[in-house]
Design a protein around this nucleic acid. Structure first.
Length: 231
DNA sequence: CCATTAAGCTAAA
DNA sequence: TTTAGCTTAATGG
């Protein structure tokens, strides 16, 4: 096993209050793994034997609805804990996680969760905080999907990805991981054709610029306006 | 308004 | 060369 550097965790919320030696302790119990784009880290319903932290890359979190459709409920960015079934009092994973780009994640056996929350100051509160924020975001997305018009939903989904992963370029703000039209339709409950048409229209209007699996938002403000419109 | 079907194009594997 | 991603048009709910 390779030696991981303490600086990997020292800046992250669940670990920010910990001493160097405590972080060392945590790292010494972690496994590190790399995942190719498209590979599942774990699948919904499977035995949750470990919990995870994303060091690098981006993940799609996918849930199967009662109807059997797969929807992308959110994305995970570097520095976030994920697959924390123990925090939900569950022994199976509530969703599937797939690498949206090549990614690196640390993981620990679930039996360490009670120890971490008890022993490390701030770990529990920070973990539950992100968990709560995430559940809130899922709820928001789901109600949005049920009530809002398609164009508004797609605009909101693109903006969410920009907010999570946006980096500035000469052209505008780009989504930092590969996204297909199909992916966006899986986030918004529409078809890839509709997403394609919308992106083409927005491109003509000068709001976005996109090539395959790559989107740059050139006029975020107008997209925000679209996402707030009533129709 | 939006989904579905279907056909054609192009970049990437 | 084959396939995955994307576009566009036509049709119909």
């Amino acid at each position: 096993m390779l030696k991981l550097d303490e600086s990997l965790l020292s800046g992250l919320p669940p670990f920010s209050r910990l001493s160097r030696s405590q972080i060392r302790e945590i790292l010494d119990q972690a496994s590190s793994r790399r995942y190719e784009e498209g590979v599942a880290i774990f699948r919904e319903g499977h035995d949750a034997d470990r919990f995870f932290l994303l060091l690098d890359g981006y993940l799609r979190v996918i849930r199967t609805t009662p109807g059997g459709e797969q929807i992308i409920v959110l994305h995970i960015s570097p520095g976030q804990l994920f697959g924390i079934a123990p925090a939900l009092q569950r022994d199976t994973f509530p969703a599937t996680s797939v690498a949206a780009a090549e990614s690196i994640a640390l993981s620990w056996p679930v039996r360490l969760w009670p120890e971490f929350t008890a022993k490390y100051d701030g770990f529990a509160t920070e973990s539950y905080k992100t968990l709560g924020a995430r559940l809130g975001q899922i709820q928001e997305t789901l109600t949005e999907m049920a009530t809002q018009a398609v164009e508004k939903r797609v605009a909101a989904a693109v903006l969410r990805m920009v907010n999570q992963s946006g980096r500035k370029t000469e052209k505008g703000i780009e989504i930092a991981f590969p996204v297909t039209r199909q992916n966006i339709s899986d986030m918004t409950g529409t078809t890839l054709h509709t997403v394609s048409r919308l992106l083409s229209a927005w491109e003509k209007a000068g709001m976005v610029q996109s090539t395959r699996k790559h989107i740059v938002v050139t006029d975020p403000h107008r997209l925000v306006v679209l996402s707030n419109e009533t129709g």
